[in-house]
Design a protein around this nucleic acid. Structure first.
Lengths: 195, 195
DNA sequence: TCGTTTTATGAACAAATGTTCATGTAATAT
DNA sequence: ATATTACATGAACATTTGTTCATAAAACGA
């Protein structure tokens, strides 16, 4: 317990630092200082700076992939599946906002070959969303439009949210989760227009 | 002409490098190497690395602000204004995709006080978009919903596009500008759903 | 042609950074 | 109480990086 909570603290503090300063701008000395010990000790917690970034990014990526596979294998319709994807995003954002932020902003800082691997995971995820959208269009559930644009706009419209959940001053975000989810879902399915 | 084209080349190469490697990861030596000269010579083109980033970010930010002010002062309705904002974004993306990419990804690397100034400009822009949306809701032109979520989702849905326009392999993006604009506009006003 | 501006270089710098290592202390388990 | 594991430190390192400076070609306008 004491051991695990020290390691947990380490990963938590590092994560927030990287989120707020960026990976390259965060030094091992920054991390040590925030934890009130000296640089050398950082290496009792993690092998290297690169390994630290990797662990955050691949953990969260795999979580996303696992959850979308569950959704795909579910018996629901395509619209319901998209709604579930939105829902999962919001849940993730409320549970792991900083990891999400890194996934959006810091994947470029991975060295090869890990960078390539992560890009592969991202594409895999996108493709799964795309399949659902195409399927929904074919079944006449969604408006017919360019599926790539639909997919990327759909995903992009979820991408500002980590701002809300990483902002400590915005404590109501987690409370408003349900409301945010509803608003976002309506935006995506109904659009801004009145009809 | 020869002089200006050398300076232009310098800014163009630096911009692309920073876009592709990130600001922190791009060294003055990287830039020099790409231009086939040595580091010291970089300082005949720009005062500092920080000044380089500043020039890109503030130029493009001010362009955005100027254009939205023109739109706001125009005699068109709120829906038409939003359409014009989308249109301006696409135009910018096709003309200055790399600058846009920096504005999205690298503003965090500005030192204070420039960082604060840029955040201020961003907020100013967001607020103007928000005003249009609120106004449109009040006039019954748009669906009634949380204006902050509407604004941020609206802007976020435009934010993936620089991928398309910075990707050299995707040469048709510039050709398809009109089509992309239509698809995006429909997504934003009509949503994914069929009605 | 001469003077000025533009473009370029080599050398050097101080500071910052990721990492290693030998060693020490605190905590825990047996 | 002792052996083992977890946590911590100081010192040192090789590189990398932004920047400066004195100086030299090259290009150009007069």
């Amino acid at each position: 317990m004491s051991m695990s909570s020290k390691k947990e603290k380490f990963f938590e503090v590092s994560l927030k630092l990287i989120h707020e300063k960026g990976y390259k701008a965060t030094t091992m000395r920054d991390i040590a200082e925030k934890l009130n010990f000296k640089v050398a000790n950082v290496y009792n917690y993690i092998d290297s700076k690169q390994a630290l970034l990797e662990s955050y990014l691949f953990d969260i990526s795999n979580e996303f992939l696992e959850s979308i596979e569950l959704i795909i294998d579910s018996p629901y319709g395509q619209e319901e599946k998209l709604r579930m994807i939105i829902s999962v995003h919001i849940q993730m954002l409320s549970k792991k906002p900083y990891e999400l932020s890194l996934l959006v902003n810091e994947w470029r800082n991975l060295d090869e070959p890990k960078r390539g691997e992560l890009i592969h995971l991202k594409k895999k995820y996108n493709k799964k969303v795309r399949d659902i959208i195409i399927s929904g269009m074919d079944q006449g559930l969604f408006r017919t439009m360019d599926p790539d644009i639909a997919t990327l706009t759909f995903l992009s419209s979820l991408r500002w949210l980590y701002d809300r959940f990483t902002d400590d001053s915005n404590e109501d975000a987690k409370a408003n989760r349900i409301e945010i989810e509803k608003q976002l879902t309506d935006f995506i399915f109904l659009g801004l227009g009145k009809h």
